[in-house]
């Protein structure tokens, strides 16, 4: 797996643009949620954003995508501001932020991934439906097409959201806590698809809080606690010193990942 990720980074980072964040700060009323964040997210790598509760991991994604107001920042993809290229972004919010009792089937949700690409006042095309079908197949949910999303397990719901993001044909994928409340099978499917997306040269950013064995699936890590404690290759970021600075005390992590 490591051989593959180093292969992908070397072959794509030159061709595909970087996602660059410079001097990003976020305030909630008077509380500073993120302080002067500057970092680079590379294509072709599965990048994890980790840190304690309240560290601002989800806030970082939302601020980058312009979903919440930021106090001065430059966020660029290639040489243009990211917020001018949101059609290249697929974002999957935390499941808890979506009303899962909404009257929609699996198919309805995946087709939402084609709304922006279809454009105003138009009907979904046959090729959009084909994209949706392929995406559902990839996450092994095609058989559930006509089921209500409220009837699915947490893991199945998460796979449907992943399929929605795949149907978007994005270049930048952002997932907020996708592993919360999902089963083993879903976790495996998610990580496999993240790796596949990275090897296609996409930017894959995943907010996560688990420091266990699954952390070996990330190539790069961003360690946050209101500010960037460390960022870059997983093996460099993961050490006792950095984690203690982020979490305020010694924490256990999967030692072989470092």
């Amino acid at each position: 797996m490591d051989a593959m990720s180093s292969f992908s980074s070397s072959s794509f980072s030159a061709a595909n643009p970087l996602l660059e964040v410079e001097h990003l700060s976020v305030f909630y009323r008077t509380v500073e949620a993120l302080r002067d964040i500057s970092l680079v997210i590379r294509p072709g790598r599965v990048t994890g954003a980790i840190g304690p509760n309240g560290a601002g991991k989800s806030t970082l994604i939302k601020a980058m995508l312009g979903l919440i107001p930021v106090a001065g920042a430059q966020i660029t993809y290639g040489d243009r501001p990211l917020t001018n290229q949101l059609d290249r972004v697929a974002y999957v919010p935390q499941r808890s932020q979506v009303d899962l009792t909404y009257p929609a089937t699996v198919w309805d949700v995946v087709m939402m991934g084609r709304v922006r690409q279809t454009g105003w006042f138009r009907r979904f095309s046959a090729s959009s439906r084909q994209e949706a079908r392929a995406a559902l197949e990839r996450v092994e949910m095609l058989d559930f097409c006509d089921r209500s999303i409220s009837d699915l397990s947490g893991g199945q719901q998460q796979r449907v959201f992943l399929a929605r993001s795949l149907a978007q044909h994005a270049e930048i994928f952002c997932f907020d806590e996708p592993f919360v409340g999902v089963d083993r099978k879903t976790e495996g499917i998610l990580f496999n698809i993240f790796k596949a997306l990275a090897s296609e040269g996409k930017i894959v950013l995943v907010v996560n809080h688990d420091l266990g064995e699954s952390i070996t699936n990330f190539d790069d890590l961003i360690l946050l606690n209101r500010e960037v404690i460390a960022a870059g290759n997983r093996r460099i970021v993961l050490n006792d010193n950095n984690l203690t600075r982020a979490y305020g005390s010694r924490v256990n992590f999967f030692q072989e990942a470092a």
């Binding site: 979903l67 949101l86 932020q97």
Partner: peptide
Amino acid sequence: VLLYKELHFYTFDKLGAQAVGL
């Protein structure tokens, strides 16, 4: 009828809809 798919997305998942630039 004209805005059905956009409204469907927006009312289901505001953040997701905002993130794609709706």
